[in-house]
């Protein structure tokens, strides 16, 4: 049973996943980058991006998913996201105030507007996406470990 699961789900699921996973990822990136002009943002987009990887994990098994995004990479991305967010705040600090919006604001509703909101969203997306995927992976590994023990 456990061996089958490692190889993933049935051919139908795998084929559909192959078609949809890119779209999910793209939609997540859209939600992140348009966080300041439409509903969404770093957290929502990060969740969607994490779901794309969880999708891979469920359909193809953990080995394939780890090939795309390894555990150490997850850890690095997560810390980088947090540090990036702090760095943006500190750039504002150097510019006068902690978290001050030092970048040019642009025109409202343009993609490149609202100053530091877009970089902040990207930082949050890294943290949330990598963090949520890491949680999903941890739960899967825990389940596999428990199943192994029961045998």
């Amino acid at each position: 049973m456990s061996k089958e699961r490692e190889q993933g789900m049935s051919l139908i699921v795998k084929t559909i996943t192959r078609l949809t996973v890119g779209l999910i990822l793209l939609y997540g990136i859209y939600i992140v980058t348009h966080g300041h002009v439409s509903p969404g943002g770093g957290f929502a987009g990060g969740v969607i991006i994490a779901l794309a990887f969880v999708h891979l994990l469920l359909a193809f098994g953990k080995d394939t998913a780890f090939k795309v995004l390894s555990e150490s990479m997850m850890s690095i991305l997560e810390s980088t996201g947090a540090l990036l967010f702090l760095l943006i705040a500190l750039i504002g600090f150097v510019g006068g105030h902690f978290f001050m919006n030092v970048l040019p604001k642009g025109h409202p509703f343009n993609l490149f507007s609202a100053g530091i909101i877009l970089p902040c969203n990207i930082a949050i997306c890294l943290k949330v996406g990598a963090g949520l995927f890491a949680i999903a992976v941890a739960l899967v590994l825990l389940k596999l470990a428990v199943e192994k023990e029961e045998k």
């Binding site: 150490s72 850890s75 690095i76 997560e78 810390s79 980088t80 947090a82 540090l83 702090l86 705040a89 500190l90 600090f93 105030h97 902690f98």
Partner: peptide
Amino acid sequence: MTTASAVIPLIVAVPLAGAFIIALLNQK
């Protein structure tokens, strides 16, 4: 705000930075 009080946010930022730098670079 005076220049002396400009350091106030650092008291939060420094431990946060420490925490994430440790998480990022611990293996190296």
